[in-house]
């Protein structure tokens, strides 16, 4: 029997546009494959040419398995899984990663069930154990605990990983594109995706922002919330929010940072009026510098900060904004 070998990544695309998370995962797969002396592969489905698929080799893929068909440009779980599962059964990779995005979270469990293998969700890290088994780090109970999940016997070892956890990186290795036949009928496209609607982006995107200014329940009201927006604008950064602040309606759900929201890794993170539960901390812990502003000196968030300011955000933020304006104008 063939040994299971190779680290694979499902490349997510939305209406033909490749999502960053797939590229991030490819660079991690590259790292793990190099450690183990094996290869990486990407799976790409959609209306793509061989040349499009070839671009994935620049991000660390040794092989790209391409299912080219315009019907696959729009996500359909059954159709996708009926192509991916037989390919995985034929090629026998040791691991398969997908983004912990809505599409990845919809597809991965179905594929894992078809393969009768293990799957861990919303991983915040992947590493190889001393025995060569993939260790998947998963937050539980709102992030208050971290669990190390393994899949000791079944293959492939499957995981979904939060976007933003790994950095994409370019690679100079040469890879090949393998075109696979698309054998699907109408029955495979159930349920039928009849429409895709984009959402309007109202704010500076959090992803990729160098500075993130984030507020929590302790901002107390919408008036104070505007101070965060002003500080972010002076710093050329984006505004984020915790779950309670989103629930208060001060910020849209799209900018929620934390385990069930976004993961950010800016150069500078400033959090104001945030208690610092793990749910939020897992979303910001890879920031270069963490600044915490809170009037409660006992706030848990101070334990994970680089610089903490004990004081009322309502007073500290305007002082910061003034001083910054002075610095930038002189």
């Amino acid at each position: 029997m063939k040994e299971h070998e190779g680290f694979w990544v499902f490349i997510e695309q939305i209406e033909g546009k490749i999502s960053e998370v797939g590229l991030e995962l490819l660079s991690k797969a590259r790292e793990l494959a190099d450690q183990k002396g094996t290869y990486t592969a990407a799976i790409l489905l959609g209306d793509f040419s061989k040349e499009d698929a070839k671009k994935l080799t620049h991000y660390g893929a040794d092989k790209v398995f391409l299912f080219s068909d315009e019907r696959l440009n729009r996500y359909c779980c059954l159709a996708y899984s009926r192509l991916i599962t037989p390919l995985v059964e034929r090629e026998k990779p040791e691991a398969l990663f997908m983004g912990a995005t809505p599409l990845g979270a919809d597809l991965a469990p179905r594929v894992a069930a078809q393969l009768e293998t293990g799957l861990s969700a919303h991983c915040v890290d992947l590493r190889l154990g001393e025995d060569g088994i993939l260790e998947q780090i998963v937050p539980g109970f709102g992030g208050t605990m971290m669990a190390v999940i393994i899949c000791p016997e079944k293959r492939p070892q499957m995981a979904t990983v939060m976007p933003g956890v790994f950095k994409k990186s370019e690679s100079h290795k040469k890879g090949e594109v393998i075109e696979e036949e698309v054998t699907l009928s109408g029955e495979d496209f159930i349920p039928e995706a009849v429409e895709y609607r984009t959402k309007k982006q109202k704010t500076v995107p959090l992803e990729g922002a160098n500075v993130v200014v984030c507020g929590g329940y302790g901002m107390e009201n919408e008036e104070n919330w505007k101070l965060l927006e002003e500080l972010a604008s002076v710093l050329g950064g984006a505004v984020g929010a915790t779950r309670p602040a989103v629930d208060e309606g001060w910020a849209p759900e799209e900018v929620m940072i934390g385990q069930s929201g976004k993961i950010v890794r800016p150069k500078l993170y400033i959090g104001a009026g945030i208690s610092g539960v793990m749910h939020h901390v897992v979303g910001i812990q890879d920031s270069d510098i963490i600044v915490v502003i809170n009037k409660d000196p006992g706030a848990q968030f101070f334990e994970v900060c680089d610089f903490g300011v004990v004081g009322d955000a309502e007073k500290i933020l305007p002082a910061l904004i003034e001083k910054l304006k002075e610095r930038f104008s002189s």
Partner: peptide, 30 residues
């Protein structure tokens, strides 16, 4: 198919420099 190999409470090591004082002063210091 999956097993829990271990559980841990995440530890995050940071500088943890705490600044206190009047808003003007701490803003400058920060």
């Amino acid at each position: 198919p999956t097993r829990v190999r271990g559980l841990f409470i995440p530890e995050i090591k940071r500088r943890r420099e705490i600044l206190t004082g009047e808003p003007e002063e701490v803003a400058e210091e920060l």
